[in-house]
Write a protein that binds this DNA or RNA. Structure first.
Lengths: 206, 206, 206, 206
DNA sequence: CATGAATGAGGTTTCATTCAT
DNA sequence: AATGAATGAAACCTCATTCAT
């Protein structure tokens, strides 16, 4: 007699809400374990069996939560991007102040450090055309918006070529993230963060 | 006059040289097609059958030339890295002048533009731990050397933190390469090259 | 009353026990068919496809039960040896009486007659070094023990050279088994059994 | 310029006989190497490539000497059996004297010791029905003759059941050979030979 | 006679997905 | 909701044999 069966027998039946909570938390668990395995072994090499085992459920049940492997990676990608977007430009007014720009830099470093796995997946996805196709729309829209905000920022700074400037900055951040992700234990993330602020932030103090 | 040519008056077997020629050209063809497919579909998703079909040969023959898929990608990686290393720092003295640094920047842009596929594979490999493991030694040695040369360069410039400076520059170049590779048709490579020279080259004129 | 049976009123999933039953019977079936094919065609020539076809299942399912062909033959070998060991020397005191010796001879003949296939596999395995290596430990330990018991028996009989005597007897039994196995329909097993008792048993009557 | 080409140029052309000699010795070499590999890896696992490499010739040339792998093993088996038959009962009168019987025993031990590989192959072949079928006629005829001669011998000795007696003796010799072959380094062949003479020879002295 | 490139069938194995219970 | 048995397509790889030279 398991915990749950005791509950079933002696308590009132679970409400729809309770079931949904269980469902959501299990879904999150699956996505978490899937992410780990995707980055550790690659999308193809990480099997549904692996993921199910890591999540402590049966293969069959997996398909109750994600109707295919493709849907699974898609949802992971979307979730990760949404979290990233939410953090950036929190007031959503589309205008970047110097403080917000510095905040953005610092937050980006924090996010990369704290979600290494997701960002590793992100780059992997970007580089695999068929996987990229699955996820394209969900991921690229927000990224373009972000770039646009940056361009506006540089425009207000009256830089000669704000478009190129924004691309350069974006590429730099991508490159840093990628290098950190490849070898988190040896990459001097904190030093690099300071270096970026020194060279790219417009705030006086630091 | 070989033994064989004396004995076989009617129909000479292929000479060793002929065999070598066949092998070399077949090998090059396979590697070329394999590279295309690896970047188009990813290492796992590109099957030996695919590659064989693209190269116009039978599956079995693939294994006459590369005894496993792993060996195949390894050889492709080594070849690409070798070409890259050969181009960079041609006089090989390990010391970078301002002119050489600018030359390096320009060459890097050229190489990325002309070997898009290889560099796409390069990033893909980096991000797939099991594939990375296959290729690690062949690829990382040269890269580390390069970084060291850069650090020495910045040291001579008496920058405050030459190590971080070198990493930042490397990350920027990686990021640019990656962004270009993801969408070569829309990325303004030439503008970006000029931007990099403007911000990072120490040569006076430009 | 399990958790599951409460929750699922309409269609219960299989119980653990049901799954186990399925697994056991399938496994036994596969092993039986595999044994037949291994002896009929040899280990290498008997393909997984063959075995699956004979067992009436898909190739893929084979690997749900035995994770490789090697594991399959190993399990068959262990099972066969265990049955043989269990039958021999039932009281397990390691000391052979004259009656037990005669019993051993008779049982050996019976076992060979009734498990022709297994013993054919046994000899086949012994003679294929790579296959033998797979199975070595599981099979040789018990066999050596048996020989030792025989040596002790001959020692107590005060024979001049009990070691050689035991080897001779063992070789004879092996030779008989092999000859019977090669052509069960024509080999006069019963006559030979009597001949062995006549020449090798120490019991007075027969 | 190889040895052979020198010969070709300066000496008179090889006679048909010389060519045949070369052919024969090469054939023998192939058979020898093939035998080694068949016993080391089994018939299926030993590839034509392996054998060709060991014999120092090309795969293609192999087929000039043996038109298939099947023919190759057949010829090896036939050759080995012929050598065995030639040694036994040299005067071929079909009647065994006591001296000849003892000679036969001793020779059998010698042959097994000196042609371990062939006898290993012999047993392997016997136990693999499809391979056995290839070789059946060539091998079984002589063996049956031999058994007949032994039966006659035991008849003249006026034993109760000469047929069974002959089978027992044959099985013993087979069993000894098999046990020796399985572990030549540890099997006490010489002791066993003496034991066999002691128990089975009718010659007085020894 | 001699080579090794080339083929194609078939081998073992993996895995996303479906399905009966 | 939950299980794992079951499938089938497709993956990597091997190898006897053929063939052009």
């Amino acid at each position: 007699l398991t915990d749950r069966s005791v509950i079933n027998l002696v308590m009132s039946p679970r409400t729809v809400k309770q079931f949904e909570t269980i469902r959501e938390s299990r879904k999150a668990l699956i996505m978490e374990k899937a992410l780990e395995l995707f980055v550790a072994k690659g999308f193809h090499a990480a099997s549904i069996s692996d993921i199910a085992r890591q999540a402590g459920i049966s293969k069959g049940l997996m398909y109750n939560y994600f109707k295919s492997k493709e849907v699974l990676i898609k949802e992971i990608a979307v979730k990760g991007m949404r979290e990233f977007i939410d953090i950036f430009d929190p007031n959503r007014d589309g205008v970047l102040t110097d403080e917000e720009f510095e905040y953005f830099i610092n937050e980006s470093f924090r996010i990369v450090r704290e979600n290494t796995n997701f960002w590793k997946l992100y780059f992997t996805i970007m580089l695999q055309p068929p996987v990229y196709e699955m996820v394209k729309e969900e991921v690229m829209g927000p990224m373009f918006e972000l770039l646009q905000i940056l361009v506006d920022y540089y425009k207000r700074k009256e830089l000669a070529d704000p478009g190129t400037e924004a691309i350069l900055f974006g590429a730099l951040m991508d490159g840093i993230a990628m290098n950190y992700i490849l070898d988190p234990d040896h990459f001097p993330l904190e030093e690099v963060r300071k270096g970026v602020l020194r060279k790219f932030s417009f705030k006086d103090d630091m």
